[in-house]
Design a protein around this nucleic acid. Structure first.
Lengths: 144, 144
DNA sequence: TCTAAATTTGTAACTATTACAGATTTATAG
DNA sequence: CTATAAATCTGTAATAGTTACAAATTTAGA
């Protein structure tokens, strides 16, 4: 449903440079993984998937990179999962659904769009996250 | 904005019994704290506020109680904060705003009400949380 | 090529949470 | 009013995610 980015090294490098991030090999790798998998991964998932290809990679680098990309508003930090943080590339506004059975997180879009809301009760809004939890389509099917 | 519950011991005890929870002194104390403060506290906040009055209280008991109350749908677990879980009494549907400056969490209500949404993309919805982050009214004022 | 700055790495420390077994309290039966 | 079983509470140890930090490496600039 959410369109795929071009995940070529060249394009990922450009994305970083546009946002003012120096495109090191590690940073390109992390962002490329996020774009390609589009799977709301944890730090651990990213690390374990990249380390076979970058044997010297450190977990700390993954943490540092995600923190930097988050500050530069290239990615957003999802607090939907209760044990670890998840990360998502910022493109068109969308919401998230997490399955309580298999823990997978899905991109969804509810009809109403409140992404334009700038303040509420005098508080200035900078980020909005709409989280839903329940049982996903696949797990519902398997229960029968 | 969200109305206060009656926080008398009698009423809190009844709330627990109605939900099928045996009303021990510790459980009454924890739920009473949640109702009275209405402040989306962490386990640590609850523990530190209660232990002066219940010197034998254990952190584990606070964890156990919150888990139980959550399973019995007396309270909900908020994943809005990125370092620890927060807890909230379940009453009328409302949303949450967290200030990135002072970290306080406020109850808010956006115009649209999607609390009746039961499924999306074939996934069965059981819980919905709408989180907003930014700078709260007080912190905005103090910046001038 | 030399030097300074930025980035990456690995370890140690820290914090939230869970596991678990023993102690205490509460409920039940005689 | 006991004796016994069940439920609850407690404290410690273990686990997991994250951060702090200094040393090593890489990159950029003179």
């Amino acid at each position: 449903m959410v369109k795929n980015e071009n995940t070529s090294t060249e394009n990922v490098k450009n994305l970083l440079v546009e946002k003012g991030v120096k495109p090191s090999f590690q940073r390109i790798s992390v962002l490329k993984y996020l774009l390609r998998e589009n799977n709301h991964p944890s730090v651990d998932t990213i690390y374990k998937n990249l380390v076979p290809y970058i044997p010297t990679l450190s977990r700390t680098t993954v943490y540092n990179t995600l923190k930097l990309l988050s500050e530069k508003e290239v990615i957003s930090t999802l607090t939907i999962n209760d044990t670890d943080l998840r990360y998502d590339f910022i493109n068109e506004p969308h919401d998230h659904f997490q399955c309580k059975t298999c823990n997978a997180i899905f991109d969804v879009k509810v009809g109403v769009d409140i992404s334009g809301l700038k303040s509420i009760d005098g508080h200035q809004i900078q980020e909005i996250q709409l989280h839903m939890k329940g049982v996903c389509r696949q797990c519902l099917k398997e229960k029968n």
